[in-house]
């Protein structure tokens, strides 16, 4: 299918009624044939060229510029930068703030990705066979996706208020009210599990999305496959484990990529809940502080480069794999 445009030769840019005349031409030379082919696809390239230009400049040009900045010693906005190699990249690890921010982002990512995957998968599983009120459940679980992380942060900051039991608000107050005082905790301000608590609002927001992905995946598995397994004596749970879930690996992969790339660059949610408090510091917040408070472009660009690198590490293989697979399936 991909070669189809080449077959029809020179009609690409012709007005109506010009095509029949072309058919009567003498046998073309190879050069002429190439030219004619180019006349077919060239308009396509032209139509895409504004976007190629924009993406070229604003994605790849800016990434190049940013990398350049990260490799320089432009540590003040008005200063000229000299090339210093990887010095900034190494220096970051020698301070206290950066490794702590990376650690926080890792904890957040593990809890958020794991939690959203599990909850989304569970919701998908519960809804898969159809249940009374399914559309209502689906709409409800997916609704947080329509809201900004800032709005989510506003309400969750209130819910996860760490004030002690005697003047507790939010979830702590609810725990006290139901005599579950042992559940009262410091939420995101706790030194040992704070970032795990910080992942709760993100799980709340994204679980519905993962549910929708899994639900589409579950329902894409042909009923005959399930039926065949049942005839072979599989329990309903066995059908899921041995027949349905193995078919869902691509869905799982997509879900991990989406959650993972969101999680590594998490910013809005942290700002809305914790502001710039160091206990909840993550690389994206650190970078923001470098730009607006410390005003150190080279250092900000270095952090941004690390973020890009972390995301690219798993997104590039995924994209190449997806586009190739699609091509081989003859899309």
């Amino acid at each position: 299918m991909s070669t189809a445009p080449n077959r029809t030769g020179a009609v690409a840019d012709g007005g109506p009624g010009r095509a029949p005349a072309r058919a009567a031409r003498p046998a073309p030379t190879p050069a002429r044939r190439a030219l004619r082919r180019a006349r077919t696809w060239l308009p396509g390239l032209l139509l895409v060229s504004p976007s190629i230009l924009l993406i070229g400049v604003f994605v790849y040009g800016m990434i190049g510029w940013n990398t350049n900045l990260a490799l320089s010693d432009k540590h003040a906005p008005i200063q000229e930068g000299e090339f210093v190699g990887l010095a900034n990249f190494i220096a970051l690890w020698q301070e206290a703030r950066w490794p702590a921010a990376v650690g926080n982002a890792v904890v957040f990512t593990v809890v958020f990705v794991g939690g959203a995957l599990f909850l989304g998968w569970l919701l998908g599983l519960l809804l898969d066979k159809g249940i009374r009120g399914e559309p209502v459940f689906r709409t409800l679980f997916l609704a947080p996706m329509a809201v900004s992380f800032i709005a989510t942060g506003v309400v969750w900051r209130w819910l996860m208020n760490p004030a002690p039991a005697e003047r507790a608000t939010g979830l702590n107050a609810l725990f006290v009210r139901f005599n579950l005082d042992f559940l009262v905790n410091d939420w995101w301000t706790a030194p040992d599990f704070g970032m795990a608590a910080m992942a709760l609002p993100a799980i709340w927001q994204l679980a519905g999305y993962i549910m929708a992905l899994f639900l589409a995946g579950f329902r894409g598995v042909p009923e005959e496959l399930r039926e065949a397994a049942r005839v072979d004596g599989c329990s309903e749970w066995g059908v899921y484990r041995h027949v349905v879930m193995p078919q869902l690996r691509p869905v799982l992969l997509s879900a991990v990529i989406i959650l993972g790339h969101m999680s590594l660059k998490v910013f809005d949610l942290i700002i809305a809940i914790a502001g710039q408090q160091i206990i909840a510091d993550v690389p994206a917040v650190y970078m923001w502080a470098m730009v607006f408070e410390v005003r150190d472009p080279a250092k900000g660009a270095t952090i941004a480069s690390y973020l890009l690198f972390a995301v690219a590490l798993f997104v590039i293989p995924y994209l190449v794999w997806t586009v190739r697979k699609e091509r081989s399936e003859g899309r």
């Binding site: 895409v48 976007s51 190629i52 993406i55 604003f58 994605v59 790849y60 040009g61 800016m62 990434i63 510029w65 940013n66 900045l69 990529i257 790339h261 590594l264 660059k265 910013f267 994206a284 970078m287 730009v291 472009p297 900000g300 660009a301 952090i303 941004a304 480069s305 973020l307 890009l308 995301v311 690219a312 997104v315 590039i316 994209l319 190449v320 586009v323």
Partner: peptide
Amino acid sequence: VFTLFLFGMFIPYQAVMIPLQ
């Protein structure tokens, strides 16, 4: 070109922010 476009969907926008600004 399509793959290069798609990558633009996943980049952390922090990586273009300082130059853009």
